[in-house]
Simulated scan of single mutants.
Amino acid sequence: MGQHATVKTYRSLQGELANAATRGELFLQYQPIVDMSEKIIGMEALMRWDSAEYGQIPPAQFIPLAEQSGAILYMGDWALDEGCQQLQQWSRIPMAAEWTLSVNVSAHQFNTAHFVDYVVHAVQRYGIAPGRLILEVTENVFLNSTSSRQQDGFRRIREAGVGIAIDDFGTGFSSMCYLRDLSVSRIKIDRTFIENVTENKKDQGIVVAIVMLAHALGLDVVAEGVETAEQLKFLKTVGCSAFQGFLFGRPSDVSEFLCSEFL
C-alpha cells in the first residue's frame, strides 16, 4: 500500500510539474559568490517549486522528476528568462550592475536544437552586458561535445558574451579535452572536496590541483560549499579567488543581499 501511494504521488508530482511555471509556482532564490575580500561579485540562481497541492518540494526531489518527464526543458527556459530579467534590473543599481548571474542548465536542455538560439535571443532581448550571464553545466554536458553542431553552439554562446562554468568539477566526465578545446570560462570546485579540506590531505591535493589547472588555463575558479572560516583561509592560501557557501549566505530572495550590500 505504501509503495502504491509513493508511485501515485510520484506520478501526480510529474503531472503538477507540467504546468508549475504557468501557475506561478516556480521561483528563483539566489546565493552569493564573493571574492577574496568577501565582497559579492555575483549570484547563482537556484530554482524552487512551491506547489499549491504539495507545498514546497525540495530541488533534490523535483529536479530529477523534471529531467525524467522532460519538464526540465520549459522549466530551464523559464529560469533563464527570469535570470535575464534579474540581470536587467541589477544593471540599474550601481552596486549590483557588475554582478554576474549563474543559471543552471541541464545536459538535456543544453543539447536541444533551440537552446543556443534561446540564449542568444534572451541576451539581446534584455540587453545583458557581456560576461554578466554564466551558464552552469555539469561535466556530462561535454560527453557528446565533439559534434560540429555542439562545438558551433559553444562558440555562438561565447560570442554572445555568455560565460560557461563547469559545475561540480571533478565528480563527472574526466577528460580534460573540453577545457582545452571548448570555450569554458569558469570551474566550480565541488563541495565534496571542500567539506573536509582542512583535515583531509587528499582533498587538499585535489583542490590545489584544480586551482593550479584553472590558473594555467586562464579560467576563473570558484569553491562551492564553503561553510567555515578555516575552509576559507585554506582556499585563499592556495590561490582560490572566489567562494560560495553558507558562510556568505544561504539561498534566499535577492533583496536580502541587496539590503546587506548597501547598509
Results as ranks from 00 to 15, higher is better:
P64W: 05
P64I: 09
L65T: 06
A66V: 12
S69G: 08
A71V: 05
A71W: 05
I72E: 04
I72Y: 02
Y74L: 13
M75E: 06
M75H: 06
M75G: 14
G76F: 01
D77V: 15
G83H: 02
C84K: 12
Q85N: 11
Q85K: 10
Q86L: 15
L87K: 00
Q89L: 08
W90M: 00
S91P: 05
R92L: 06
P94H: 12
P94Y: 06
P94R: 08
M95C: 11
A96D: 01
A96H: 06
E98Y: 03
T100V: 13
V103M: 04
V103I: 15
N104E: 01
V105D: 05
S106D: 08
H108P: 13
H108Y: 12
F110T: 00
F110G: 01
F110V: 02
F110C: 04
F110Y: 11
N111E: 05
Y118G: 14
Y118I: 13
V119Y: 01
V120R: 02
V123E: 02
V123Y: 02
V123P: 10
Q124E: 08
R125I: 08
Y126A: 15
Y126G: 15
G127H: 07
I128F: 01
I128L: 11
A129P: 10
A129V: 14
A129N: 12
P130Y: 03
L133Q: 05
L133C: 01
I134F: 05
L135A: 12
L135N: 09
E136I: 15
V137Y: 00
V137N: 12
V137A: 09
N140R: 11
N140C: 13
V141T: 02
F142R: 02
L143G: 09
L143M: 07
S145W: 03
T146W: 01
R149T: 13
R149W: 00
Q150E: 03
Q150W: 04
Q151S: 09
D152I: 14
F154C: 05
F154I: 07
R155N: 10
R156M: 07
I157E: 01
A160C: 13
A160T: 10
G161I: 01
G161N: 02
G161R: 01
V162W: 07
I164Y: 03
I164V: 15
I164G: 11
A165P: 11
A165D: 07
D168A: 13
F169M: 07
G170E: 04
G170S: 08
G172F: 06
F173T: 13
F173Q: 07
S174G: 13
M176T: 08
C177W: 01
C177Y: 00
Y178I: 13
L179K: 02
L179G: 04
D181M: 12
L182C: 05
S183C: 10
S183L: 05
V184A: 11
S185V: 04
R186L: 11
R186S: 10
I187Q: 02
K188Y: 03
D190C: 14
T192N: 10
